Simulated assay, not measured.
Amino acid sequence: MISLSKACALAAACAVVLTACGSSTGASGSATPTAPVDVGKASPVTPLDAAATARAKKQGSVLLYTNADAQQTAPITKAFEAKYPGIKLRVLNMNDAQTFQRYATETATGVRTADVVMATDSVGMLDFVRKGNVLGYTDPNLRNLPKYAQLAPGVVAVSEDPLVAVYNTALIPKNKQPKDLASLAELSTSIKGRVGTTDISNPQSFGAVSSYVSQQGDAGWKNLQALAPNTKVESGNGNLMQKLAQGEYQAAYFVSGSVRALIEDQKAAKILNYTYLKDATPLLPRAVAVTKKAASPDAAKLFVNFLLSVEGQQAACKGGFTPYRDGVDCAYGLPAVEAVVGADNLVLGGYPKDIVKNKATIVERWKKAYDR
């Protein structure tokens, strides 16, 4: 049990969390959860050619469908429109399944649809490509990005977002919070029912599990099977964070890394703490693609080009994304994550091999372990 004063503090923190559980670092971008790291040297600017840029300006707008929330995309919108004042970026926020379904419905009826889609559902995005919905666009920035940036034909990663563990510090002090999933599995036996995660039907959870077991193999499944009987399952991050702040949960794992900035910058930092798990920090590529039916195809290409530039990645950092391009100074960037967990504990390399073929097996094995 916790004291009345702590319970009040937890409730207050909960209110903060719920208003921004997918949130940004704020305009200042001042949070520094890790020590300064070497982010490398920025490569030369690789813009679109002048003719394509001129056509983009004539088209005048970009319609983006994305699973990122409004607070995350706001810094990107501001930076893009400042760089290209004649082009308006319109953002519709929805989950990945809604994005793909809405595009299918709108293209079937001839209604204006997305010029660009941004999603973390790997299987959904690959199916979107298979159905011929992605323009075969190769951005000039790709020559200056790692090979894993290219996820599929016409599909590139905007960021490599980590999944983290989050703890209620009033119930598990920082010095006793597990730093790897195996240790959390061990602890979970003493706090049965006070540990949370998200359901495998959530693309974020599936992405976390599939990436983790692709790297860890049977040892990874063993850790998940040890955690499963002691874990309660939620539909998404919102419920997890609320129950953590209220003290119903003491720990949660495979939580979206977008909560990092919130926990660092807001009052919730006194109640909640996140950590990268050194044996289990899956990175989910947040994919972006120009659609085949884009009404503003050149403006869409210009937007993708901006997102992949150093300037665009810097703006994405302010929205809580995890940039990976060299020369981007970001407290939540890939170099900062790697500095904590080590390169060998990051799952990089695009989408896991055979992810579409293996999805049913992974889901079935997870459901059996978690009795779903």
Rank of each mutant, 00 (worst) to 15 (best):
S28A: 15
A20M: 08
S28M: 11
V17K: 08
A52G: 08
T32H: 14
A51C: 11
T25F: 08
D38M: 02
V37Q: 14
S5M: 05
S28R: 13
T46G: 00
A7S: 12
C21W: 14
S43L: 07
A51S: 15
D38N: 14
V39P: 03
A7Y: 03
A11R: 10
T46A: 15
S24N: 03
C8E: 13
L10V: 02
T25D: 04
P47R: 00
T32E: 14
V17R: 09
A31W: 02
K41S: 02
G40K: 05
L4N: 04
L18Q: 11
S30W: 11
A31R: 02
G26Q: 05
A27M: 09
A11M: 12
T46V: 05
S43R: 04
C8V: 14
A12L: 15
V37Y: 13
D38R: 08
P44R: 07
S5E: 08
S30R: 12
L18K: 09
C8D: 05
A52T: 15
P47K: 00
V17Q: 12
A7G: 09
S24P: 00
S28I: 00
T32V: 13
G26K: 00
K41W: 00
G29V: 09
L10G: 13
A35R: 13
G40N: 07
G40E: 01
D49R: 05
V45H: 00
